[in-house]
Computed example of a mutant assay.
Amino acid sequence: MKTMTMFSALLVLALAAGCTRDEDAVGPAQKAGKAIDEAGEKVAEGLRAPLEKADEAARKLAERAEQERRALAERTEQAREQIKDATEEAGRGLEKAAGKVGEKVEQAGEKMQEAAR
Rank of each mutant, 00 (worst) to 15 (best):
M1N: 12
K2W: 07
T3S: 10
T5Y: 04
M6R: 06
M6G: 13
M6F: 04
F7I: 13
F7W: 06
S8F: 06
S8T: 12
A9I: 12
A9R: 02
L11M: 12
V12G: 08
L13W: 03
A14Q: 06
G18Y: 04
C19R: 00
T20G: 13
E23R: 01
E23V: 12
D24C: 06
A25I: 04
V26S: 09
V26E: 08
G27F: 03
Q30N: 06
K31T: 14
K31G: 13
K31F: 11
G33I: 02
K34H: 14
I36T: 12
I36Y: 03
E38A: 13
E38W: 00
A39E: 13
A39G: 08
G40Y: 00
G40C: 04
K42F: 07
A44R: 00
E45T: 11
G46H: 04
E52T: 10
E52Y: 01
K53V: 14
D55E: 14
D55G: 11
D55P: 05
E56Y: 00
E56K: 03
A57H: 00
A57M: 03
R59F: 12
R59M: 12
K60Y: 06
L61S: 14
A62Q: 08
E63D: 13
E63R: 00
A65D: 04
Q67G: 10
Q67H: 05
R70G: 13
A71D: 13
L72G: 12
E74P: 00
E74V: 02
E74S: 07
E74W: 00
E74R: 01
R75I: 03
T76P: 07
T76D: 09
Q78F: 02
Q78C: 01
A79T: 09
A79Y: 06
A79H: 04
R80K: 09
Q82I: 04
I83M: 08
K84Q: 14
D85P: 04
D85L: 07
A86C: 02
T87H: 06
E88Q: 08
E88D: 15
E88K: 02
E89N: 08
A90N: 05
G91N: 11
G91C: 10
G91Q: 10
R92F: 09
R92T: 08
R92V: 14
G93V: 08
L94F: 08
L94C: 07
L94Q: 06
L94P: 09
E95P: 07
K96S: 15
K96R: 12
A97V: 00
A98Q: 11
A98Y: 06
A98C: 05
G99W: 02
K100T: 12
V101K: 02
V101M: 08
G102H: 00
K104N: 15
V105G: 05
E106M: 10
E106Q: 07
Q107L: 11
A108L: 03
A108H: 01
A108P: 02
G109I: 04
G109D: 10
G109Y: 01
E110T: 03
K111D: 14
K111Q: 14
Q113A: 15
E114W: 02
A115D: 15
A115W: 08
A116I: 10
R117T: 09
